[in-house]
Simulated assay, not measured.
Amino acid sequence: MGRRRGSASVALILLVLGVLGLAVVVLTGWPASVPVASEAAVRTRPVKATVISSEPCGARTSGDVVEVTVDGRTTRARLDGCGHTAGQQLDVRVPVDPGSDFVVRPAAEGDSGSGDTAAAQRLVWVLATLAGVAGGGYGLLVRPRSAVAG
């Protein structure tokens, strides 16, 4: 009879772990399926920028001012960042069709502008969480018999 109770608790543990794992996968993948209008609609391209004026980082900063050359025309724009040194050269991304007033964003290493980095980061979080859940479940399954009875 004790054997039956043990297998029922194992089945319950596995069911809870399975539901938890499924919930993690769904909740982590869900934001990826909702397109963000401002980022999805704006394609960018890499350019070099020179910091003209720097603002200290804080809650109310509007960003540093940089000078970029887009389609042969040099213009000033706001950088989505702060605290850079005046005269510093940066790799940035500007909109493909910038218009008159635009914000440039720092270019990340290996940034292709396609959102692959965000998807890879989500996958890392899903796999790390599932590994933690599996490890915890394994710990529950292999605990000593005396701990189960007491």
Rank of each mutant, 00 (worst) to 15 (best):
G72W: 01
C82I: 05
G113Q: 09
A118E: 15
F102I: 02
A128Y: 08
C57H: 06
S114W: 10
T129I: 01
G63D: 08
A41T: 14
R60W: 01
V42L: 03
L123S: 11
A41E: 15
S112R: 13
W125K: 11
G113R: 07
G136K: 00
T75H: 00
T75N: 04
S53F: 01
G132C: 09
S38R: 13
D64C: 09
R76P: 03
P106A: 12
S62A: 05
T75R: 13
R73W: 00
L141S: 09
T85L: 15
S100G: 03
E39C: 01
E109S: 14
A128M: 12
R93E: 04
H84Y: 07
V94F: 01
R122L: 12
S54V: 09
V66E: 04
R143I: 08
G115E: 04
E67Y: 10
S53D: 12
V70C: 02
Y138L: 13
P35E: 07
V36H: 12
A107V: 06
V92N: 05
R93I: 01
V36I: 13
V96K: 04
G58T: 06
P106H: 09
A59F: 04
L79H: 03
S100F: 06
R43C: 01
E67M: 13
R143E: 06
V65S: 10
R78L: 13
Q89E: 15
V65A: 10
D111M: 07
G132R: 02
A86P: 15
Q121S: 12
T85C: 03
G99T: 03
R105M: 04
S114A: 10
P35H: 04
T50K: 14
V47H: 05
L140H: 02
S114R: 13
P56E: 14
R143Q: 11
V124Q: 09
D101G: 04
P46S: 07
G115Q: 00
S112C: 08
S54C: 09
E109G: 12
G99R: 03
A40K: 04
V133H: 01
A77Y: 02
V65H: 05
G99V: 06
V66P: 00
A59E: 15
